[in-house]
Design a protein around this nucleic acid. Structure first.
Length: 893
DNA sequence: GATTCTTCC
DNA sequence: CATATGGAAGAATCT
């Protein structure tokens, strides 16, 4: 005897999601609904022994029901992303189980099931429908049983016609009338207002159907009669909406949904990938996985095989084959370079995927006359290119005299947004992650460090081709993922446009006055020599001052100073320790001074001088857009985001940063307290918002509130302490951290924090909520939906967990601030272009933008820059940007 | 390559 | 009981 099981996949997934505790796999993807689904399916398979099985899903958002009633399912909360991300996994699981699944545009899962159950019935088969939705009861018959999930998903209640009669006193078809009268809030089906289940049942017991109730409305009494008469149309429409359509044009039938059991190795691999070890064990699948070479990440048992690629190595003679019309069909491009610094890297080659062929051009070939069309294609902004690290590629090409325009989709940038903590963003890792044919790690092909070498051309072409092919395969998967996670706009409207803005800034570079640096360096050299001599004299011996190990021996063994702190390997000699030792010995102050000036000399004088381009007199930093887990940029070669400012001697370094054209100015604008303003916005704390709306100095205001005194009683020390608390709050404070910072007792620090939270209640609420949410979801987000996974938020190790908790508190703040200045940068770039200004944006330092400005644009820019920054986004508190300018970066303060 | 220390926001 | 404020890059030493 055949037995069909038809499952309402959407409804069961929903039930499972809310019934199961949070669960994530190694990749940080939620899997609780998948797990619930898996256990339920396995139980059904085991207990019911079905001969046919199908899981139906709702397709898109719009169905035929919307044609007559646009508000159908209106007002329904959108599916939580933590659930939507699980649907692909559920479908993979079904594939591994060998269970058919189906969805059809324009129809809901109900309709598909209704149609199949009708077919089963007509063929005389026995059918079990599994759902969480009572509507389905209308499908019950002598041969069709409906099982409705009850609390959780493991328990079900089975409905036969008798069961329905017993419970409701209705026939299965009358379930439709029931809903017609009472409506369904979750689907936004109106029914008759004021009629709930009780009244609806009473009416149906008396009159039998919606139509008959309406026909006999006159017989009803009082309010009831009024309501029924007023809402005749609603009732009829509701009945229509509630009726499951059983004539869906399906391209699946008995043959397609036949169930023949699952393949054990395949299922084992799928469960392993999901991280469901308990299920593997329960099913005794521990050693069922076939093959071992495919790697642990392989899905569906088989694992991806090496791609069959047709590789064409173009030469200067043949490259003309790649004409514009052919290039227009290109699906992906890889631009490979050698070297970390894109301003110095050399072009290795280019691989372009067109159909089933990958065309590979080495750097020389790309530069040859024959490849003119390829260069034109690369430079054409109207031809969007899908690639990997287009930002770096554009810079490398740029220095080789070629252009790259038309950033279509960037797999590196997308990988960063999808998981910014990454590290696993190399194409070799991404190919494995997305189950695509393997790509060799670059190290394996080129060697690393000093051994780096470009291999023979055939090996090289194979490697570049496999990378280009991986780009083509991965890009659409990432696009879907970005869409699914609501990060589409973050990618297309912020990060991708920003990558082009960054290229411009980097190519532009900032002029550095080498003479001034050298002069500064000579003076430092003298000071360093004097200081070293004095230190050796006091120490009574010469040693390597730059070696913490040797310094430790001198201080703690020879001079017998007290040991304050130890490192893994020995004595700590960091600034904090030395400051504590200052009263003990004259030498300490000198060492601190030495540390300070030698840092200036080595990093900022010598380091910077090395980075100046002889030809242009400029330094060209490289902003890295895919490094910082919070969404900030970082800066390399040289790092222009940590040029000294706090100490005057260091600050003078900034005098060497000058405009690149005579008579121009350096103009800088920085956000005032952007992180605390962001905190005020996202926490909604009234006190903090009010502080910013009042325009007062925030640390003074904090001191007033925390110490409960008027403004004129806040002394410098109170303000300093309030400032430290404010910083601590932003970073995810602990009493110990604040105590160290303020050099006070931990208890005192704890009291400060307690007092702060007592005043800024909204902030405490935010901190509690965000940690709870991170625990729930496994990730946190910024205002623009930038996401950071925190897998350790549920760790049993206190250290790991605490760190994750502080990260949960800090990342939305720091990340939102990063979102905002990035927005300002994209807008600023557009303004400069649209207004035809000659001023150029040169640097970003997290909350600051630096420009070079011709004199006649000073007035404009003094207004425009802060205005763009302040209006980059609207928060519940105003944003404030302060602008200044001068003949160099030092003067722009 | 890891460790220590300093610089910035 | 131990814990110990977020995010980065670079220079130097030492293993």
């Amino acid at each position: 005897m055949d037995k069909w099981i038809l499952i309402d996949g959407s409804s069961i997934a929903f039930r499972a999601f809310f019934a199961m505790p949070t669960l994530t796999n190694a990749a940080g993807i939620h899997t609780n609904a998948v797990y619930g689904f898996a256990t339920m399916l396995l139980k059904l398979i085991e207990e019911e022994k079905p001969t046919h099985m199908l899981v139906a899903f709702d397709a898109g958002k719009v169905t035929f029901r919307h044609e007559g009633y646009e508000d159908y399912k209106g007002g329904r909360e959108k599916t939580p992303p933590e659930l939507s991300e699980q649907f692909p996994l559920i479908k993979e699981l079904l594939d591994a189980l060998g269970v058919a699944h189906y969805e059809l545009e324009n129809y809901e899962a109900d309709d598909i099931i209704g149609t199949l159950s009708r077919m089963a019935e007509e063929a005389g088969k026995e059918t079990l429908i599994v759902t969480g939705d009572k509507d389905m009861l209308q499908l019950v018959s002598d041969r069709v049983t409906v099982a409705i999930t009850r609390k959780g998903i493991s328990e079900v209640e089975r409905f036969t016609p008798e069961a329905i009669r017993e419970k409701y006193g209705l026939t299965p078809l009358q379930i439709i009338d029931l809903k017609g009268l009472m409506g369904d809030a979750s689907d936004n089906i109106p029914g008759i207002p004021g009629v709930g289940e009780k009244t609806a049942l009473k009416l149906l017991h008396e009159y039998g159907s919606v139509e008959n109730v309406l026909a006999n409305a006159a017989a009803l009494k009082g309010k009831m009669r009024e309501k029924v008469e007023q809402h005749r149309e609603d009732a009829l429409m509701s009945k229509r909406l509630a009726t499951i359509y059983r004539e869906v044009p399906l391209d699946r039938g008995e043959a397609e949904i036949a169930y023949n059991g699952y393949d054990r190795p395949t299922l084992a691999a799928a469960l392993r990938k999901l991280g469901f070890r308990s299920l593997i064990e329960r099913l005794g699948l521990d050693h069922a996985e076939a093959g071992s070479g495919a790697g642990a990440d392989a899905a569906g048992g088989a694992g991806p095989e090496a791609a069959e690629l047709r590789i064409v190595r173009q030469t200067p003679e043949t490259a003309a084959e790649l004409a514009a019309d052919k290039l227009a069909e290109a699906e992906a491009v890889l631009i490979e370079s050698a070297g970390e610094n894109p301003h110095q890297a050399s072009l290795i080659g280019v691989a372009i995927v067109i159909g089933d062929t990958v065309h590979v051009l080495t750097g020389d070939v790309l530069k040859s006359e024959g490849a003119a069309a390829v260069r034109d294609w690369l430079a054409d902004p109207e031809r969007p290119k899908t690639g990997y690290d287009l930002h770096k590629a554009a810079l490398v090409l740029g220095w080789e005299g070629m252009e790259l325009n038309g950033f279509g989709f960037d797999v590196l940038l997308a990988a960063y947004l999808l998981d910014p903590t990454g590290g696993n963003d190399a194409l070799s890792s991404l190919a494995a992650k997305y189950n695509q044919p393997p790509v060799k790690p670059d190290d394996a092909v080129y060697g690393k460090g000093a051994k780096f070498a470009v291999p023979d051309e055939e090996t090289l072409a194979g490697h570049l081709a496999s990378k280009a092919d991986a780009i083509r395969r991965i890009a659409p998967l990432q696009q879907q993922e970005l869409e699914r996670l609501g990060m589409h706009r973050l990618y297309y409207e912020l990060e991708q446009p920003l990558s082009r803005v960054l290229c411009k800034m980097e190519r532009q570079g900032i002029a550095v006055d080498a003479e001034a640096l050298e002069e500064n360096g000579r003076e430092l050299e003298r000071q360093i020599a004097d200081t070293i001599a004095a230190i050796y004299r006091l120490a009574g011996t010469e040693f390597n001052l730059n070696s913490p190990k040797q310094l430790g021996e001198i201080l703690f063994e020879k001079l017998g100073l007290p040991v304050k702190k130890k490192t893994k390997t020995g004595y700590s000699t960091d600034a904090e320790v030395l400051e504590a030792l200052e009263p003990y010995h004259e030498i300490i102050g000198l060492i601190l001074h030495y540390r300070q000036i030698s840092k200036l000399q080595s990093t900022y004088i010598e380091g910077l001088l090395k980075e100046i381009r002889k030809e242009t007199g400029k330094v060209h930093t490289y902003y890295r857009q895919t490094i910082a887990a919070t969404g900030r940029l970082s800066s390399q070669f040289p790092n222009l985001q940590n040029i000294p400012i706090r100490i005057e001697e260091g600050r003078r370094i900034r005098k060497a940063f000058v405009p690149s054209e005579p008579g121009w100015y350096i103009l800088a604008a920085d956000y005032s307290q952007i992180e605390l303003r962001v905190l005020a916005h996202i926490s909604g704390d009234e006190r903090l918002k009010e502080a910013f709306l009042s325009g007062m100095d925030i640390h003074t205001k904090t001191a007033m509130d925390v110490f409960g005194v008027p403004a004129d009683q806040v002394d410098a020390n109170m303000r300093r302490q309030a400032k430290a608390v404010n910083f601590g709050i932003v970073y995810g404070i602990s009493d110990f951290g604040l105590a160290t910072n303020l050099k006070i007792a931990r208890k005192e620090a704890a009291a400060f924090i307690e007092q702060y939270f007592a005043v800024f209640r909204g902030v405490r609420q935010y901190m509690d909520d965000i940690v709870a949410k991170a625990r729930q979801d496994g990730y946190v987000t910024t205002l623009l939906e930038r996401r950071r996974y925190l897998p350790e938020i549920n760790a049993s190790n206190y250290n790991l967990r605490s760190f994750a908790e502080r990260t949960a508190m800090n990342t939305p703040i720091q990340g939102t601030a990063a979102d905002i200045i990035k927005l300002a940068m994209v807008k600023m770039d557009a303004e400069l272009r649209d207004r035809g200004l000659r001023s150029r944006m040169l640097l970003q330092v997290h909350d600051e933008l630096v420009f070079e400005v011709p004199e006649d644009e000073l007035e404009t820019m003094k207004e425009l820059v802060p205005s763009v920054m302040e209006n980059a986004i609207e928060l519940d508190v105003p944003l404030k940007a302060e602008v200044s300018y001068g003949k160099n970066w030092y003067e722009a303060k």
